[in-house]
Amino acid sequence: MRRRSLLIAVPAGLVTLAACGDEDAGSSKASDSATPQAPATSTPPTPKIVDGPLPAITAGTKFGEKPTVAKGSGEPSKDLAVKTVIAGGGQTIAENDYLAADYLGQIWDTGKVFDNSYDRKAPIVIQLAQGSIIDGWRYALAGKKAGSRVQMAVPPAYGYGDEGSPQGGIKGTDTLVFVVDVKDVFNGKSSVKGKEVAQDDAALPEVGTNTDGAAPSIEVPDTAAPKKLVANYVIEGDGPEVAAQDTVLVQYKGVVWDGGKEFDSTYSRKQLASFSLQQVVKGWSQGLTGKKVGSRVLIVIPPDLGYGDNPPQDSGIEKDSTLVFSVDILAKM
């Protein structure tokens, strides 16, 4: 079974692109951590945030370095203890934003490390929202900036509750200590920031290259639609390549080839989308596989790799439509 770290719910996938066949839905690949899914509990009241106590960080004191943290001394606070160890200058985190972060978690009383992303060399990408992450993280990180290192001591009520997490070795009485390096923040105004790639095929749509968070234009030529899948860089990033089983965080806009009418857009909803490439139509999964994180990709999907003669009801997509998308790959999850 794939193990998750701080997730308590898998983020919702796309609606208009959700595959309706017999494919495995998969799950969000947050990490291969030792901390399992947290139990669902009633929401506690907003915590009081205090300065400490917090155990010392004795090694790995720079941003991005794996920290070593001393065992907790004495009784931990019943409140949520939070300290900005290194203040970053990036984007401020707000509720419902997504963040990419490296982190280490250990138990106050024993100093036992139960999870860390540094050894995996893969930061977690997760939404700072109720139902997606433990409440200790939600309250401790809201208002912090990208580039910050934040240390927190999370009492059970804002961690895994009275049940704890037996698989992770966490008891219902354990206060948890985390060090979190916030590497990036994403929201409905995010765009990729890569290198522009020439769009010199007049028979293909031209996609706007603005990176201001606004929806890019998609100009569909007055020609016949291609019969095969097209997946071309518009802006090429320098992140890791997306694999066929990955879950991605994206901004996207979709139009139909005939007439260029928009039928779906995260920009219009002002809300990012995350989904497994195993959960979407074949044109999306094939088109994004092998592309780099941080890129904007033009995808032209012929009917046999899209919805064919069975488009989603009330989607604005006619039968046997060729679909055109601009997709910003913000992160792998």
Results as ranks from 00 to 15, higher is better:
Thr209Asn: 10
Ile133Leu: 15
Gln151Leu: 04
Gln167Trp: 10
Gly169Lys: 05
Gly194Cys: 10
Val197Thr: 07
Leu128Arg: 06
Gly208Met: 03
Gly147Glu: 04
Asp181Lys: 08
Asn116Tyr: 09
Pro205Arg: 09
Asp201Pro: 01
Trp137Tyr: 14
Phe178His: 05
Trp137Pro: 06
Gly131Arg: 05
Arg149Gly: 00
Asp115His: 12
Ile134Lys: 10
Asp184Met: 03
Gly169Trp: 02
Ala142Trp: 00
Gly208Asp: 06
Lys144His: 03
Gly188Phe: 07
Asn116Met: 06
Trp108Arg: 00
Lys112His: 13
Gly161Leu: 08
Asp184Thr: 07
Gly159Gln: 01
Lys193Glu: 13
Asp115Trp: 09
Trp108Ile: 00
Asp184Ala: 15
Gln130Thr: 14
Ile107Thr: 08
Lys145Gln: 13
Lys189Leu: 03
Arg138Ser: 09
Lys195Cys: 00
Phe178Cys: 06
Arg120Ala: 15
Asp135Met: 11
Ala157Val: 12
Leu176Cys: 12
Gly188Pro: 08
Lys144Asp: 01
Lys144Asn: 05
Lys144Met: 04
Ala153Gln: 05
Tyr160Phe: 15
Val180Tyr: 03
Ala157Asn: 11
Ser191Tyr: 07
Gln106Gly: 10
Asp162His: 11
Phe178Asp: 04
Ala203Asp: 12
Ser132Ile: 08
Gln167Asp: 14
Asn116Ser: 13
Thr175Lys: 00
Ser117Met: 12
Tyr139Ile: 05
Gly136Asp: 05
Ala198Cys: 02
Gln127Met: 14
Asp200Val: 04
Leu128Ala: 08
Tyr158Phe: 15
Gln199Phe: 01
Trp137Arg: 06
Thr110Ser: 15
Asp109Ile: 03
Val179Arg: 00
Pro123Cys: 11
Val179Asp: 05
Gln199Cys: 05
Pro166Phe: 07
Lys112Ala: 15
Asp184Gly: 00
Lys189Trp: 00
Pro155Leu: 09
Ala157Tyr: 05
Pro205Ser: 10
Ile133Cys: 09
Asp119Thr: 15
Tyr158His: 12
Arg120Leu: 12
Ala142Thr: 15
Val197Asn: 01
Ala203His: 05
Arg138Thr: 11
Gly161Arg: 02
Ser148Asp: 07
Ser117His: 09
Phe114Gln: 01
Lys145Leu: 01
Gly111Thr: 10
Val185Tyr: 04
Thr209Glu: 11
Glu206Gln: 14
Arg149Ser: 03
Ile107Phe: 03
Arg138Lys: 15
Asp184Pro: 00
Glu163Thr: 13
Pro156Glu: 10
Tyr139Val: 05
Val150Cys: 05
Pro155Phe: 08
Gly143Val: 11
Asp201Met: 03
Lys112Arg: 15
Lys195Glu: 13
Gly147Met: 04
Ala122Asp: 13
Asp174Ala: 03
Pro205Cys: 10
Val192Gln: 01
Gly161His: 06
Val150Met: 05
